[in-house]
Design a protein around this nucleic acid. Sequence first.
DNA 1: ATGCGAAAGTTCGTATACGATGTAAGAAAC
DNA 2: GTTTCTTACATCGTATACGAACTTTCGCAT
Lengths: 239, 239
Amino acid sequence: MRNTKLEGLSPGPTLIERAYEAILDAISDRRLEPGERINQEDLAGRLQISRQPVGQALNILKSQGFVRDNGRRGLIVAPLEREFFQSIYQLRGALDAMAAELAAGRRSDADVVEGRGLVAEGRRAMKSGKMEALIDADKRFHMWTYRVAGNPLLVDTMGLYWNHLRRAMAELLRRPSGRDLVWDEHQAILDAIVAGDADEARARALAHARDASARLVEAIPAPAVPASEDEARAERRRA
Amino acid sequence: MRNTKLEGLSPGPTLIERAYEAILDAISDRRLEPGERINQEDLAGRLQISRQPVGQALNILKSQGFVRDNGRRGLIVAPLEREFFQSIYQLRGALDAMAAELAAGRRSDADVVEGRGLVAEGRRAMKSGKMEALIDADKRFHMWTYRVAGNPLLVDTMGLYWNHLRRAMAELLRRPSGRDLVWDEHQAILDAIVAGDADEARARALAHARDASARLVEAIPAPAVPASEDEARAERRRA
DNA sequence: ATGCGAAAGTTCGTATACGATGTAAGAAAC
DNA sequence: GTTTCTTACATCGTATACGAACTTTCGCAT
C-alpha cells in the first residue's frame, strides 16, 4: 500500500533546498554565531556549490528572520534579542495552549504511545546531560502535540519558531536550574492530553510556556550582544 | 529629531523584493488564479526583468505557501483548499484572542482614535459595496489590533496569513449574507479594547474568528477546484 | 486510423559573467 | 604624523549561458 498514485515523483532536493537546510542548521545550533557576518562566496565554497543557490537560500532565511540585512554590507546572522524571543514565547503560549486543548480531544492510541515514549526519551536525555539531545527531545515533544492537534499549519509555523528557539536554548540549558521541572511540566501536559481533559491540557501548556519564557528571558543577556559592524571590522583588521 | 543615527541607509528595493510584492499582490487578489500554472519567463517578461529575480521571489513565495511545486512541471498558484483555510482560521482564532486581550491592556489614546476611524471606514466601505475596499478595511482593522497588542512578530505572521485569506475573501463577500454582522462584531471588539476589558475583548475576538471561519468554509467549494494538470494541458491545447 | 519512436520544444536549476556600490589600503600633501 | 585623495579590492544583485529532465509533436509502420 505504498504510493497508490505514483504520479508523485518529487524532483529531489535541489541545491537550494540543501543549502537552506545546511545553513539553517548551522544557524540554529550556533555554528554560525548570532551577529556574525555572512559571505555568500565563503558559504558557497564550503558547500562546494556556486553562489547562486546559496543566495537564494539566504533570501528565504531572510524572509524567515534568521538572517538580516546589514545595510549595504551584506547579511548577518540575526542577533539574539530579548524582545524577539518574548514575542515568540507570547505566540507560542497561545498556540501551545490551543494545540494541547485540541490534542486532548483527538489523541489516538498510537499517539498516546508515542507521547509517552517522547517523555521517557526526554527524561533519559536529561540524565545523560547531553545538551543537544535535551534540546532535541524538547522540540520533539512539542511537535508531537502540534501533530496530534491535527493542524498542519501549526506544525509548520511552530517548527520554524522552534528553530529560532533552539538558538537561545543552548544558553538556557547551560544552567541546570529547573531542568527537571521542564519534564515534569511536559509530563503534566501529556497526562492531561491522555486523559482527554482539554481544559487542564490548555492550562498546563500555557503555564509551561510562561515558565519557559521566564527562564529564557533571564538567560539572554539584556543588551543583546549586537556584534556590531565596528567589532566585525576590528576583527578583520586583526586577521 | 529625525534620524538621530543616520547610519541606516537602506539599499532600496531590489528587483527581487519588487517582484515578490508584485506577484504576491497578483496572487492575493486573484489576478493569478488558484491552481494556475506559473511560468518564470512569462512573469519576467511582464515585469520587464530577467528570470533571476523572479525565480528568487517565487522561492520565497513557495516557502510561504502561496505557490506550490507541481511535480517536475514547475509551480502552480496554491489552490484554494478548505482544510488549509480551516487551519488558518484555527490559528487566527487563538492569535486574535490573544491580540485583543493584550490590546485591551495597552491601547493608547491615539490607538483608540485610530481604531474608531478604522471601524467608521469599514462601515463606509460596506455601504459603498466595493469589495476591494471592504476586504482592505477588514484587514486593516485586524492589523490594528495586532499592532496595538505590541507584538511585532504577531504583526508579521498574521500579515502573511491575511494575504492568504484575501484570496478566499472575494468568494466570501460575494454573498452579502451577514456583511453588516462583520462590522458589528468589529465594533464589539473595539469597544471592549477601548474599555480595557481584556476578557471581553478576548471573547469577542474569538467569537468573531469562529463566525468568520464558518462563513468562509461554506463559501469555499467542497472539493476545492484543483485546476488539475489535465485541465491546464487542455487549456493550452485550446490556445 | 492507431500506436510507437525519435526529434524538437519547454522550462527549470545552476553556473558563470558583468556592473554597481561600498570598503580598505596606500600615496601624497600639509 | 595626520589627513585627504585615489586606486585597488570585496561583495552583492542581476543578466546571460548552459545542461538536464520532461512534454509534445510529427512521421512512420502496422
